[in-house]
């Protein structure tokens, strides 16, 4: 298989990339890691007339923390960079847990977090993680930069709010209001498959109290699901067996799974409950004493 014919440009700067997109008409696509776009083009689900490859644009492969703790992940930061990241291991347990379970190790050397958010696959793992963390996408276009909260970034399956001449340049995760805790658990039939169920939990804990909470679900609905009621049940109080049970139950209620070849709807809903409980119990065991939950990156998910 190979893609249909397209014009290819490989600009050397962001300004050049944006100008190329602006002049390129409606059907241009930005190519970063290509691990979703190239397969789509090969299957002819996408047939852009112009492909703007940003891999030669310098200075986009970073992930770093600002002095206030805000995390920034550049458009060319690969999943593998995040998997190996000392920064994430120390400061961001939800992302550290998710990075090793994205796709497979070889896809992770090319694919990018920002590209994954833009691709807006309803079963994408990073969308849940960034949603649970209250993150945003920064887009740059001819009219300057704008920051789009993740909750409003995706408008439907494989659709986002970017204008045709905008490039998503980074993802932003706001700073913690306490000690970070949480994790990402993914049930998959084999490495590289889409999630049967994925659960992202992001907590800030201060003085034994959960100061903020986010829970988002992958693979159990037509889109990424923000389990806001479940998260609300945790905020403002200590993690207890009761609050954990309450949140797990509400998250399972928020899920909209369908029976398919990956499992029955009941099974998937049950796994949402199990994963929320598992992540929160670990957070209760270690997050309260200030060590966070770095150990949730289960290899054999």
């Amino acid at each position: 298989m190979y893609p249909s014919r397209f014009r290819y440009e490989a600009p050397r700067s962001l300004d050049e990339a944006i100008a190329t997109l602006r002049d390129g008409g409606d059907y241009a696509k930005v190519l970063a890691g290509g691990q979703s776009l190239v397969p789509l083009m090969k299957l002819r689900f996408a047939s852009p007339e112009l492909v703007v490859d940003i891999n030669n644009v310098p200075g986009l492969d970073y992930h770093r923390a600002d002095p206030d703790g805000t995390l920034r992940i550049g458009a060319l930061c690969r999943h593998a960079d995040l998997e190996r990241s000392v920064l994430l291991k120390a400061a961001q347990p939800t992302m550290a847990a998710a990075a090793p379970v994205i796709a497979d190790p070889i896809v992770r050397t090319r694919g990018t977090l920002v590209g994954s958010l833009c691709h807006a696959d309803p079963q994408g793992d990073w969308a849940s993680v960034v949603l649970a963390l209250g993150g945003s996408v920064v887009a740059q276009g001819p009219r300057g930069r704008r920051t789009i909260p993740m909750a409003g970034f995706v408008t439907g399956p494989f659709e986002n709010v970017l204008e045709p001449d905008e490039v998503a340049v980074e993802a932003v995760i706001p700073p913690a209001t306490g000690t970070r805790a949480g994790g990402y658990l993914k049930l998959e039939r084999r490495v590289g498959d889409f999630a049967t169920v994925g659960v992202a939990v992001a907590l800030d804990i201060s003085g034994g109290t959960v100061t903020s909470a986010g829970i988002a679900l992958t693979g159990v609905g037509g889109s990424t699901i923000a389990a806001t009621d479940a998260a609300r049940a945790l905020a403002g109080q200590p993690l207890t067996a009761q609050s954990i049970e309450m949140a797990a139950g509400l998250a399972a209620e928020a899920a909209r799974p369908r029976t398919d070849h990956r499992g029955s709807a009941d099974y998937k809903r049950h796994m949402v409950h199990t994963f929320v409980t598992r992540i929160l119990r670990r957070a209760g065991g270690s997050g309260v004493d200030g060590t966070g939950v770095a150990g949730t990156a289960e290899r054999a998910a």
Partner: peptide, 10 residues
């Protein structure tokens, strides 16, 4: 890299 998922031009 999975070479079926990268363009030769890259």
């Amino acid at each position: 890299v999975k070479s079926c998922t990268m363009l030769a031009v890259q």
